[in-house]
Design a protein around this nucleic acid. Structure first.
Lengths: 334, 334
DNA sequence: AACCGAAATGTAATCCATTATATTTTGGTT
DNA sequence: AACCAAAATATAATGGATTACATTTCGGTT
């Protein structure tokens, strides 16, 4: 494989000139440029990118750390990231933690070792101090998990107010016994959605009842089981807010299995608006997250950091939208 | 940042020894090794990976080229790939083509430039000659799309026989008017599934009727529209085989919208067994593809090539499974 | 003690593009 | 023609790990 010296010799110029033709063609005289280009062509020269990366200490690669890729949400965010990354000549490295914290730390090493130019963390459970420290030195963006008081570039939604909106919607439909199936409460996002639920009830002067709050793990199965638990109560809820669509679907299945109907007997509202929520029957009423947009924004924020721009605004909260479908009935027009 | 020379100086050895401690510790005397390790510790030395990559011309990174990541199938295959890749210290670079052939070619360049050690192509439409030529020189695996007569390492399922099995199942249930909603017929995989459909009908001595074959594009929408087209026929099919689950769901929706029932009025069978097919109502009868296993196998095959092993077996055809659920009724026990 | 082969370690070349600095060329001005 | 600043190009150092080859050290044998 020809290298730059070969090209330089053939074109009768120095390697510096060859390099310039490749990097800043405008600084090279037309005639010389053509000579070099011809030599490149003739030798079928391809620059050794690894040498370039090494010399430049940059890789044009960013790392996306994600708990799992086999899920309805992350691929969409990654899709958004990829869109912008590609546009600016960056490659996307996949950092699957499989929920293993150690692995997350090993990905951090990749950043420190400059194997990647920056890192986007998607809902990754890591020590706040570690993240802070890292973000102070390297380009980092946190996505989808807004951590209060953490001065790290973040793209998120307002989980509290979004959840509040969902539960308010149920309250407005006349429900006074509203259950919630939460996500894992060790994740801030889950706690925030629970907080929104609480706020909505208080606001509507509905008593918050402990048995109506059950902790799930975002799977269909817990949605199913916890709804069964609700239905077994003497004073069962007439509406349930599930912290994600998958659990909402499990919950609905449970209702149906008991011979009850959704939304007539129990109204259910989800969170995420995954693609399938529209196809589900009854179609899910849910809070739509702008996943692709979140990905795009994250990448844009990361790019700014990589390019050394100063971030005037670090926290980016994107709008969600209450999508009303069938699973909790329609608001009566007044 | 300390480099290897600094460590060597502090430990009073040569860089060669430091390098050996890192690469082949067993070739260094215990005492020396400890000295070096201490120096590394003291200087908080981290090897410059980019220099290593450059010197070694290997990156411990593989590229997965995929038409889109926002889809129910590819994330699972990628998950499988990632599992094995991680196990062997390889990183996974995402190569999203967004159905753009040019981009696919640019990913090929990354392989040629040794930016990655190998490449896995997932159902990527590329010129056969290009693939052949590439695979002759570099580690490449083709996944999910078996291309006849192409002597390139491939992991796939037998689309023909799997489709045949699906349609046979419908025939055994007594259906004689069976429609098919195919995938895009410029993809070999789609043509194979169609071929299987034809074979099953011929085998059962059922006439193949052109109007009962409609070309879709794997989306929910075409499933819906094409089923409506079927239902508008004077002699509508009583069963439909859709080339993927998403179209099957669209088709079922269309049936329901006409006030008809699945499977009673029209039986529907899908292909893929995406996660959601189980939750759909009626639960989809479908051909299950071993996506994760396909990913794993692909990575294993790639690894062998990277390690210079000779592949005794190039074509790997994995088993599919007919998963019988509700959407086409149950086979009468005899 | 002398000697040997094996084990351990050192020396220095190598990979290749980039770029700071130095030098030459160019085109224009007086 | 002489001169100058700007533009174009060349020279050579640099980044840091790896490794072929050379040298030294070691443990054992006679």
């Amino acid at each position: 494989m020809a290298n730059m010296t070969d090209v330089a010799k053939l074109a009768n110029v120095s390697t510096a000139t060859v390099s310039r033709v490749l990097q800043n063609p405008e600084t090279v005289k037309e005639k010389t440029r053509v000579k070099v280009l011809n030599a490149i062509e003739e030798l079928n020269y391809q620059p050794n990118i690894l040498a370039r990366y090494f010399r430049r200490t940059e890789t044009k690669t960013i790392l996306v750390v994600v708990p799992t890729i086999m899920n309805n949400v992350f691929p969409q965010i990654i899709g958004g990231i990829d869109l912008i990354a590609n546009q600016f000549g960056y490659k996307v490295l996949l950092g699957n933690t499989n929920l293993d914290a150690d692995k997350a730390y090993s990905y951090i090493d990749e950043l420190k070792q400059k194997q990647v130019d920056g890192m986007i963390l998607l809902t990754t459970r890591l020590d706040n101090d570690v993240i802070s420290e890292l973000a102070a030195k390297y380009p980092v963006v946190l996505t989808s998990d807004f951590i209060e008081g953490l001065n790290v570039p973040t793209v998120a939604i307002d989980n509290v107010s979004s959840a509040r909106e969902a539960v308010e919607h149920l309250a407005k439909l006349g429900h006074t016994r509203v259950g919630m199936i939460t996500g894992p409460l060790d994740i801030p996002l889950s706690r925030d959605r629970l907080k929104g639920y609480r706020q909505a009830l208080l606001e509507q002067e509905i008593e918050v009842d402990g048995v109506l709050i059950q902790e799930g793990d975002h799977t269909y199965e817990t949605g199913y089981h916890l709804m069964n638990k609700f239905l077994a109560l003497e004073n069962a809820p007439t509406a349930v807010f599930a912290a994600n669509d998958t659990m909402a679907m499990g919950a609905i299945k449970a209702v149906k299995n008991q011979g009850l109907r959704v939304p007539d007997d129990v109204a259910v509202i989800g969170f995420d608006n995954i693609q399938f929520s529209e196809l589900f029957e009854p179609a899910l009423t849910t809070i739509a997250q702008p996943f692709i947009e979140m990905g795009k924004r994250s990448m844009e924020l990361l790019l700014k950091q990589i390019n050394g721009e100063l971030l005037t605004k670090k926290q980016h909260v994107l709008d969600t939208q209450l999508v009303i479908r069938e699973s909790c009935g329609y608001l009566k027009e007044n």
